[in-house]
Design a protein around this nucleic acid. Structure first.
Lengths: 196, 196
DNA sequence: AAATTTAGAATGAATGGTCATTCAGAATTG
DNA sequence: CAATTCTGAATGACCATTCATTCTAAATTT
């Protein structure tokens, strides 16, 4: 029964993030993670069930922190438009300043396989929920049409943000991700708002 | 030197598509593709350099056909708005009626690794170019602002379409993908057009 | 406070299963 | 009968996982 906490738990997760970002999930050997973390190969299995479990745990930890901070920031914004702007700039801000995490979420996490997928759907859904809540706020304010399919709109928002980050990662981060937050926000607002 | 044509070449690609969609890239053994294609294991290596090469070739073939047909259809549409609608509905139409291909492009192709990535960037870029051309047409018609960042707009369009397809695949195709083409088109048009 | 016991944490070499790939020979073709 | 295409059993590299052993430090005893 793996121990899901303690200093070494996070040490291993940190090492995994670095190594996955550098070499990709399938290419990194568990032994390398162990080395990077400064622990023995076997120690990994005291904290994690399997290599896959490391991937899932890493994603879950990062995503939970991401959503928590996003909620925090959103609560400080007033109204639909300001919240939408916060959403986009928080997403870009966090990944923009954590290249390894960006590499990981955009590229490595897509190494999908049914098992992994089940493991990550929870935390990802909680992010989707936040986006949908913002859109619903827009509806209650009258800015966004009540006829709009909220789930579809959420897919558009997430898809757009996600694609921009992926391209940025692929470009080897040649430009500032955050500089795209505002222009993207403007387009998304136009897509959602009936009223100019 | 692998032969990149002939009956068996396509037989193997068909078998690979089926198997990748069913079991995922990393889980499918080359031997299974061979069996499915009705050829010997070794024959695969007369037509392809490696397992990875099968993946890349498959994507390239499918993408080239996709773009070719898209261009064909676009040429029949008049004006920015009609072309944008064709773009979205062609994307949804093709993947909506080819579940295995959808599974493959949305899920398996993301098994990214630098080598694979280089292999697919060409054909994917040609799709991006088509999208950008449509947006530029909108600009020349005056519907889309000249100040709009065309590449960013392309990322939004592709990202949105792509995310909707991914969700549809993940949902195990419980609903009609094509039914989302129109509402998505309307949002994207609103995002891009200055004039209502 | 020294000696002893104990539990659990940590180690890393060894294991074993999994496939991608090869290649010597068989079959087919022209 | 050469050339070409195909075959599939054999190979060997790879690497996640295991587990017998060692270490550590707290608890207990003398």
């Amino acid at each position: 029964m793996p121990i899901k906490k303690g200093e070494k738990y996070f040490q291993i997760l940190d090492a995994a993030l670095k190594t996955f970002a550098l070499d990709g999930y399938h290419r990194t050997q568990v032994a390398r993670i162990a080395k990077e973390a400064g622990v023995a190969d076997g120690t990994i299995y005291l904290y994690f069930e399997s290599k896959e479990d490391i991937l899932i745990s890493l994603f879950t930890e990062k995503m939970e922190a991401f959503v928590l901070e996003l909620k925090e920031r959103l609560s400080k914004g007033k109204g639909f438009e300001e919240k939408l702007r916060i959403l986009v700039s928080h997403h870009f801000g966090l990944l923009g300043s954590n290249p390894a995490q960006a590499m990981f979420t955009q590229i490595e996490m897509r190494q999908i396989d049914p098992v992994i997928n089940k493991g990550i759907s929870g935390p990802l859904k909680s992010y989707f929920k936040v986006i949908e809540e913002v859109i619903r706020l827009g509806q209650s304010e009258g800015c966004v049409s009540m006829d709009l399919d909220v789930r579809l709109a959420r897919k558009m928002v997430f898809g757009a943000v996600d694609e921009v980050v992926t391209c940025w990662v692929m470009s080897e981060r040649k430009y500032e991700l955050t500089s795209l937050a505002d222009p993207l926000y403007i387009m998304l607002k136009a897509a959602l708002c009936t009223t100019k």
